[in-house]
Structure formats: structure tokens, C-alpha cells
Nucleic acid binder design. Sequence first.
DNA 1: ACATTAATTGTGT
DNA 2: ACACAATTAATGT
Length: 216
Amino acid sequence: MKLDIQSLHERFGNMFEIELLKELFEYGNYMEVEEGFTLMRPGGYIRTVPILLSGSVKILRADSEGREALLYYLGGMDSCAMSLSCCLDRRQSEITAIANEKTKLIAVPVDKIEEWITKYSTWRQFVFMTYQKRFEDLLGVIDQIAFQKLDDRLLGLLNRKSKQCGCSVFNITHEELGNELATSREVVSRLLKQLERIGKVRLSRNKIELLDTAKL
DNA sequence: ACATTAATTGTGT
DNA sequence: ACACAATTAATGT
């Protein structure tokens, strides 16, 4: 399938002016990729910035051990904030981008990105919005990761305590737990309540009973 | 047994 | 993080 100016207009008509659409059409490189296709890997130099037409792409961050964390998905008419920021000062990619499904996109050359930023206000807005959207996504991811970590640390602490006293019931207040975990009493209370809901623990005043001892 | 008080825990902002 | 409500344990009368 080929890209034509009409379908561009259908997608971006109410967002970009006609001049910009023409430039997009002229300089943008249309491509279709299958699920699993690697669009970008860490260390790769970024020569183009993708703008999605359909499908979705997942953006992953690999740590030093090769473990990968999902940062966010690109979908709709999204572009990639990472490639935008990388290409503006010609840095290498710090992320991996893999097509999540069959995906159609336009790859825009780096020099055009910069040129259009000064030339078209709608493009500036688009770039700005892209950053904003991604930033919100990332905030959510940070919350999740931070919460998950604390969750684990709390369970770990409870397990150690139960080993110490050789039984699954011990007397301790939420505040003391908070001190040991370097967090606030309220957070511990809320975390424990979650654990109680999923049946990992039973709570009462000054007392915590560790259930499901099987899974230790 | 009842009232008072302090400590612990729950919740909303 | 803070402020406040609600609950529970401890103590005195």
C-alpha cells in the first residue's frame, strides 16, 4: 500500500496546515512494519523520527543486566518523545522500540524536524504535546515501580521478622515498620491493607499475622 | 461496669 | 506529608 496525500489529510487535516502536510508527504518516508519489528535499539543513531498512522509500538528501557522495563506505548497519532529529544542534539538512542502489532508510520528525517519547528506553529504544538503525553505516562510508570518496590520490601521485612521469632504472628506497629522501611506510617498502613485484601496478612492492633506461609 | 485517655490505625486532601 | 476521624487498648474510679 502507498501513502497518498488524501489519507494524510484525513488523519492530520485538522491538526496541521496544508503546507506542512505537503512537506510531510514529500520528505516523510512511509513504511509498514510487522509485529515484533525492531524500530530502534539502544546505541543506534537516530536519523528519523517516527509518526504513527496506525498500530502501536512499545518503548522499552533496558538496564545493565539486560532486563527490560516497559516505559510506554505509542499509538494513535503519537510520535516518540525520546527520538525527538535525541535527534535534536544528535545523541544515540537510549531505548528500544518494537512494533507491538502491524504498524504503519511515517519516518521524518531529523533536519526536517528542526526546520519545521521554526516554520510551523502547529508542528511546535505537536512536538510539545508529544512531550507532555509521554511525561504523564512516565509519571504513572514511576508510581507503579516505586509502589511495587516498597511492596516487596515490606513483604521481605515481614518474612524476616517471622523467621526471627519463629512464628508467623508478631507484635509491631505500623509506625515501627515505617521507620525500618524509611517511609511513612500511612504508607505502611495502606500497603498492609492491600495485603490484607488479597489474604496475605491479617491485621489487628499492635499485631500482624502472616498468612500463606507456603509461598516463602 | 463505666468513663476517660492515650496510642494506633484509617482516610481524605 | 498532614490533619483529622475512628477504633482499640489501658487505666482509674
